[in-house]
């Protein structure tokens, strides 16, 4: 039955019984996940640092035929899909749910790959509210210092965090300038799959420094 539903409707219907658990932050993550999973090569790694967008990730797995209807609708049931992603799920190398740690983990994976002469990019999806965590900026310094140019961060710039607008809670702007000042290549694109895929293609071609794509949610 859910085959006929589009991803957004599917998301709404799976979250309806759980009081719309992180519905908005999952909605804004759908196109990002879709673009990243389509771009992902065999040697690439995806880290969902904003682990609360797990519902969007499950919808994508369902779209790819990796989850059944029954599994999708088991979301947050005691033996069902966990509310935040955990290691062991398809594509998930590291558990998240606690904000601010994914970029550091991505750097570690990229470093291990480089040491072993292995190929592959590490995509890490961050929330804009998540950028309040100081560890993100520790990791931003580490990535540029060590020239981890296989790290590609995507910021879900939806302008909202838990209790209000991002600029009201803790200003993020000028966001692109901040990343640039930390030594990153910065790209800003609308949060739409085709534009995101193009940006990812471009990011992969730029060597020498880590890349961040700021995916702006435009209503």
């Amino acid at each position: 039955m859910s085959e006929a539903l589009d991803p957004r409707t599917k998301l709404q219907s799976m979250l309806q019984p759980v009081n719309n658990f992180h519905l908005e932050s999952s909605e804004t993550c759908l196109e990002i996940l879709s673009a990243v999973l389509e771009e992902k090569g065999e040697k690439d790694v995806v880290i969902l640092s904003k682990g609360h967008s797990a519902p969007a990730f499950y919808v994508m797995l369902h779209e790819m035929g990796l989850l059944s209807d029954e599994e999708l609708y088991s979301f947050a049931d005691i033996d069902g899909l966990p509310s935040h992603v955990i290691r062991g799920l398809p594509f998930i190398e590291v558990s998240s749910g606690s904000l601010g740690q994914g970029l550091s983990v991505a750097n570690g994976i990229a470093m291990a790959k480089r040491m072993d002469g292995e190929e592959g990019y590490v995509y890490v999806i961050l929330g804009d509210g998540e950028l309040d965590e100081g560890q993100v900026w520790e990791a931003a310094m580490t990535a540029s210092h060590h020239r981890l140019d296989r790290v590609i961060a995507i910021v879900d710039r939806n302008y909202f965090q838990l209790t209000g607008g991002t600029e009201e809670i803790l200003s993020k702007e000028p966001l692109a300038d901040k990343w640039r000042a930390f030594g990153w290549e910065v790209m800003g694109v609308p949060n739409r799959k085709e534009e995101l895929k193009k940006a990812l293609e471009t990011a992969k071609k730029l060597g020498g420094r880590p890349k961040v794509i700021i995916a702006r949610w435009e209503v």
């Binding site: 190398e93 590291v94 601010g100 740690q101 550091s104 983990v105 991505a106 750097n107 570690g108 994976i109 990229a110 470093m111 291990a112 790959k113 072993d116 100081g134 560890q135 520790e138 990791a139 310094m141 580490t142 210092h145």
Partner: peptide
């Protein structure tokens, strides 16, 4: 990693994932 223990620990996690 510089004076950043939190980044260091999580990065170690990534290195362990990488073998």
């Amino acid at each position: 990693v510089g004076i950043s223990e939190q980044d260091m620990v999580s990065m170690a996690g990534g290195l362990a994932i990488g073998g």
